[in-house]
Design a binder for these strands. Structure first.
Length: 311
DNA sequence: TTGTGTTTTATTGCCTCC
DNA sequence: GGAGGCAATAAAACACAA
């Protein structure tokens, strides 16, 4: 034991069970202890420590003083004090009393400590230790509750997250399916004749400075040109782009740097036409979305519905 | 009865505050 | 430097299943 430990000892350890048998008591000195203090808290289980008085020198304990006054010289007392330290639990009453005090204030002023020690017939050090351990238990309990709260919160968020994940996958699949349908539909139309391509070509601007002109055209007949409806290659490209490029996801079967392959490879539309298609300006008529951006076509980057997460 | 896990009491060492 | 708090730990007491 260290510097604080001023336990009484030095003698040869005694066999308590032997003492019990000799004394006729379950606990050799309990009967003596129980009658010693003047308070009602010292039950048979009251713990008496013979060490750990280093911090409470001179703080005195009525029980001990009383005990020493009346029983000093007793053989059993000498034997009991010379045995190695033995832990004994506090009685239920003592613990309840301490609990009530702990609820009032979980810290212990020296005066209060002495008062409690006197009332319970314990050493002030024992009171201090009890409060210290009680604070530790309290802290552990608090941490456990905090953990449970955080854990349930996490579980709830995780469930929401999983639901959104599924929803996201579902929507992605749906968009992909619709995009493929649209491409197929476009191929069909493109192969039906050059007249359509011509018409398309006329409807499309060749550069950004033609925006105004096109916008005008669109104002006049926004429904006439099929490049302004949802079947347009450009729209499909942008949808695809917004799906696979803006999300940071690699496009496995679609290269955004190239035009729509099926149209291009089949030669149904000339390259110029396709190139023009990519500089085709957005118009509100065509895409009608308050969040339309230069690259989003209604699918704002901030729009979580289309801002696909990469996991 | 015994082995094992949990709770309670107590100690030790370090740290902070006055 | 002493007092007191705290974390880590030891060890006794206790609970309980096999």
């Amino acid at each position: 034991m260290g510097g604080r430990d001023l336990s009484v000892g030095g003698g040869a350890p005694l066999d308590l069970s032997m003492m019990m048998k000799n004394c006729g008591h379950d606990r050799p000195l309990d009967s003596v202890f129980a009658s010693a203090p003047s308070n009602s808290f010292l039950g048979p289980g009251a713990m008496v420590s013979f060490g750990a008085v280093g911090r409470d020198k001179g703080s005195g304990n009525s029980f001990y003083r009383s005990f020493e006054m009346h029983e000093n010289g007793n053989k059993y007392l000498d034997d009991y004090f010379s045995q190695p330290e033995k832990k004994r639990r506090l009685s239920v009453d003592q613990v309840q009393f301490l609990e009530r005090n702990f609820e009032v204030e979980n810290k212990l002023e020296p005066e209060r400590k002495l008062q409690l020690a006197n009332e319970l017939g314990l050493q002030p050090r024992q009171i201090a230790v009890w409060f210290q351990n009680r604070r530790a238990r309290c802290k552990t309990k608090h941490l456990e509750t905090e953990y449970e709260t955080l854990h349930s919160s996490y579980t709830s968020l995780k469930m929401d997250y999983d639901c959104l994940l599924k929803e996201n996958e579902k929507l992605k699949a749906e968009v992909l399916h619709l995009t493929h349908d649209a491409i197929a539909h476009d191929v069909e139309h493109a192969s039906s004749g050059e007249s359509d391509a011509k018409e398309l070509s006329e409807a499309m601007p060749t550069s950004a400075n033609e925006e105004h002109k096109v916008s005008k055209n669109e104002e006049q007949s926004s429904t006439k040109s099929d490049v302004t409806n949802e079947d347009s290659p450009r729209l499909r490209h942008e949808v695809h782009h917004s799906l696979f490029v803006e999300s940071g996801e690699s496009s496995h079967d679609f290269d955004p740097s190239k035009p729509v392959l099926s149209l291009h490879e089949e030669g149904c539309l000339n390259e110029e036409l396709l190139q023009r298609a990519y500089v085709f300006p957005k118009t509100e008529d065509a895409y009608c979305h308050p969040h339309a951006t230069s690259c989003g076509y209604g699918f704002s980057v901030e729009d979580h519905a289309f801002n696909f997460w990469s996991y």
